[in-house]
Simulated scan of single mutants.
Amino acid sequence: MYSLDDLRTLMRCLRDPEHGCPWDLKQTYQTIAPHTLEECYELIDAIESGDTEQIRQELGDVLFQVVFYSQLAEEAGDFTFSEVTDAIVSKLLRRHPHVFPEGELDKPTNGRAIDEAEIKRRWEEIKAEERAAKAQNGVLDDIPTALPALKRAQKLQKRAATIGFDWQAVGGVFDKLDEERAELAEAIASGDKDHQAEEMGDLIFVVVNLARHLGLDAETVLRAANRKFEARFQQMEQLSDKSLGELSPATLESLWEQAKKALKNAD
């Protein structure tokens, strides 16, 4: 069975200036980044499908991305794969004092009871200390701008909540949702597209906040809603003896209800 060392050896061969692969040789951090994003989404798809064999394969693809970036860095003299490993182990030791009170891998906890609320509080304190060490003094400074919009919105909200900028109960979020719906209605009535776009963004942002207050991940629940819609729409196509584009709105609505019932019965 091949090991991580074998994967790193393969990567070095692919990047060998004389005998390597032409495609791999011309890659950079920037050119690989889109592939990394694609591989991560494919891993998420595999996880959501529950196919463990596919998960195994996609994990390998993601691991290869890490090895590829590390090889590029080693060639440039920036850092090594070992330094990548050392950095993540050191960070996790630092962020888990409840498991490694002395900050050393070979000295784990003595089995004392762990309070989850205290763990979360200390986790945020440690992350704040790390941001300060990087001269990132703002509460929101280290939240990546490249995150998917729903995920970034939820992270921004969660971080702001750590300093008390949040509703105390979910009822406050519903009140804000009603307010934003009214403002969007006014923007639609005005015919101002820029204003409509702004208010639509505000409304979505509040919906994400609602998900957060309910303990849900907005990105995950929307992905689930997408899959549900896709399954129902495909069921409509199977139920109809005509192209859906040829049907009236009333017929489409009837098919939609039939599709919902069919899928519910199948469950």
Results as ranks from 00 to 15, higher is better:
Ser90Glu: 15
Arg56Lys: 09
Arg56Asn: 09
Leu147Gln: 03
Asp166Gln: 07
Phe79Thr: 10
Arg95His: 09
Arg232Lys: 15
Ser82Tyr: 03
Glu180Asp: 01
Ile188Glu: 10
Arg15Met: 15
Val99Gln: 08
Glu230Asp: 14
Val67Gly: 02
Leu7Gln: 11
Gln238Val: 02
Asp202Thr: 12
Leu59Gly: 00
Ile55Ser: 01
Ala149Met: 15
Glu179Arg: 07
Glu129Arg: 11
Gly77Trp: 12
Gly103Asn: 02
Asp166Tyr: 01
Leu25His: 05
Arg112Thr: 08
Leu255Lys: 09
Ile143Tyr: 10
Pro97Leu: 03
Thr28Pro: 04
Phe79Ala: 06
Ile163Ala: 05
Leu93Glu: 03
Gln27His: 08
Ala87Lys: 11
Thr80Trp: 11
Ser3Val: 07
Leu239Tyr: 10
Gly245Tyr: 10
Val62Ala: 06
Gly77Asp: 08
Met11Leu: 12
Phe81Glu: 06
Thr28Leu: 04
Ser240Pro: 05
Glu118Trp: 03
Pro34Ala: 11
Leu263Ser: 06
Glu39Arg: 03
Glu125Leu: 08
Glu124Tyr: 06
Asn265Leu: 14
Phe68Lys: 06
Arg94Leu: 14
Ala117Ser: 14
Asn137Ser: 10
His98Ser: 01
Gln136Pro: 03
Gln258Glu: 15
Asp178Phe: 08
Ser254Pro: 00
Gln27Met: 13
Arg94Asp: 07
Lys151Ser: 14
Asp16Ala: 12
Thr52Lys: 01
Arg227Thr: 13
Gln234Cys: 04
Glu104Ile: 07
Ala185Arg: 14
Leu10Thr: 05
Ser254Arg: 13
His98Val: 05
His96Glu: 02
His98Ala: 08
Pro17Leu: 02
Glu74Tyr: 05
Arg121Val: 07
Ala266Tyr: 00
Glu237Asp: 02
Ala169Asp: 14
Leu216Arg: 06
Asp106Thr: 04
Phe205Asn: 09
Lys228Ser: 10
Asn209Ile: 00
Gln234Asp: 11
Met236Lys: 14
Glu198Met: 11
Glu257Phe: 11
Ile55Trp: 01
Lys107Gly: 01
Ile143Ser: 10
Gln136Ala: 13
Thr52Glu: 05
Phe205His: 11
Phe68His: 15
Glu74Ala: 13
Thr80His: 09
Leu255Ser: 10
Phe68Arg: 11
Thr85Asp: 14
Arg94Pro: 01
Thr251Met: 13
Ala76Gly: 07
Leu14Arg: 06
Lys151Thr: 14
Asn110Pro: 07
Leu247Cys: 09
Leu216Met: 11
Phe229Cys: 00
Lys261Tyr: 08
Asp115Arg: 05
His19Glu: 03
Glu53Gly: 07
Asp175His: 07
Met236Arg: 11
Glu179Asp: 13
Gly191Cys: 05
Thr52Val: 13
Thr145Met: 04
Gly50Leu: 05
Trp256Ser: 13
Gly138Cys: 09
Thr36His: 12
Leu214Thr: 00
Ala189Asn: 05
Pro249Cys: 06
Ala224Asn: 08
Gly215Glu: 09
Glu18Met: 09
Asp202Ile: 08
His96Val: 00
Arg223Asp: 04
Asp241Ser: 11
Glu42His: 02
Lys176Gln: 13
Glu253Arg: 12
His35Glu: 10
Glu48Phe: 04
Lys120Val: 14
Ala182Lys: 01
Glu18Tyr: 04
Gln54Ile: 02
Ala262Trp: 02
